[in-house]
């Protein structure tokens, strides 16, 4: 089968291995195209994509916008800070107004869990989740998976350790679902106030509170961004203690495999979750993640739009 089983991309929980494989394989092809002098393909010519961002975003929005332009789609950016949302317009009214302008795909980021599904339930557009609350950020996880496959050959049987604020991280949730589906073994590590409290979710992964043990067998380490608000909310005492306990340092990497790769969804708090030497060092694949982000988003948009085109044919 060469088309996706899903009609929208809300998250990676429940998405089949077939669909993830298809997206990653297409992303690899788009990755090659991105290395060419002419990086544009006509796949989405005539289609309109709206980037509906209710939360601030620089790199994800830019990555989506580039992906859309590389696919020759017409692109419209919508930011809530300068929209009717500020004037009290409801989410569904915003969507219906935009939809009335005959758009085909909506890429949405919102603080609320489930907003992409809500929009899909209330419109005919294809919906792509660019991050909903602490729920999922599927394209980030897909680009992480692409990067691991690119660097390590496969996800099957690889040990991936995710360190940091797991509880509030949509990136961690998407990664643990997606990577588990693809046969990787995921270990979570972080302060006890920042990891999920209930075991059901943890049944899918290994929880290792000792960071040295957590990185010892890792083939890939994903450090999550630590938000300053966590200190204000009394979830952590200080950035300093976090760095000393859960930060990725040269000293910590002495406990890890020689060929371990270091990843981060960005933006990095240098000297907190990652030391600068590590972020810029030989283990870091952070900039590869950024490039792969465009390729993965091209693949997602291409395949979802292709599914709709097949339906309409």
């Amino acid at each position: 089968m060469s088309s996706l089983e899903i009609k929208h991309l809300f998250g990676l929980r429940g998405v089949s291995k077939h669909d993830i494989r298809l997206i990653l394989d297409h992303a690899k092809q788009f990755r090659e195209i991105l290395e060419r002098p002419v990086k544009k393909v006509p796949s989405l010519r005539g289609m309109t994509v709206v980037n509906l961002f209710f939360e601030n975003s620089t790199r994800t929005r830019t990555s989506f916008e580039l992906a859309e332009k590389r696919l020759s789609a017409d692109t419209v950016n919508f930011a809530s800070s300068n929209s009717s949302v500020k004037k009290g317009e409801t989410l569904v009214d915003t969507l219906r107004n935009i939809e009335a302008m005959k758009i085909d795909i909506v890429v949405v980021r919102h603080k609320g869990t489930g907003v992409p599904k809500f929009l899909a339930d209330n419109s005919n557009a294809i919906i792509v989740n660019a991050g909903d609350g602490a729920h999922e950020h599927p394209t980030q996880a897909l680009l992480d998976m692409l990067t691991i496959e690119e660097k390590l050959g496969t996800l099957e049987g690889k040990n991936v350790t995710i360190i940091g604020d797991i509880r509030h991280s949509r990136v961690a949730r998407s990664n643990l679902w997606g990577m588990s589906t693809m046969g990787a073994h995921v270990t979570l590590c972080g302060p006890s106030t920042l990891v999920p409290r209930n075991t059901d979710l943890m049944n899918h992964v290994t929880w290792e509170p000792d960071i040295k043990k957590a990185v010892a067998n890792a083939d890939a380490i994903i450090a999550l961004r630590l938000q300053k608000e966590r200190m204000d909310d009394a979830l952590l005492p200080s950035m300093r203690e976090y760095r000393n306990t859960f930060g990725i340092t040269d000293e910590l990497l002495e406990c890890a495999k020689d060929k371990v790769i270091i990843m981060h969804p960005g933006p990095i708090n240098r000297g907190v979750e990652l030391d600068s030497d590590i972020a810029d060092g030989e283990h870091s694949v952070i900039l590869d993640q950024v490039t792969n982000g465009v390729a993965v988003r091209m693949a997602v948009l291409f395949l979802l739009a292709g599914g709709r085109n097949n339906e309409n044919a």
Partner: peptide, 13 residues
């Protein structure tokens, strides 16, 4: 409710 589903969905419990 703070439980398995709030964890899974990233919702405040």
């Amino acid at each position: 409710h703070e439980g398995a589903y709030s964890d899974m969905l990233g919702m405040k419990g």
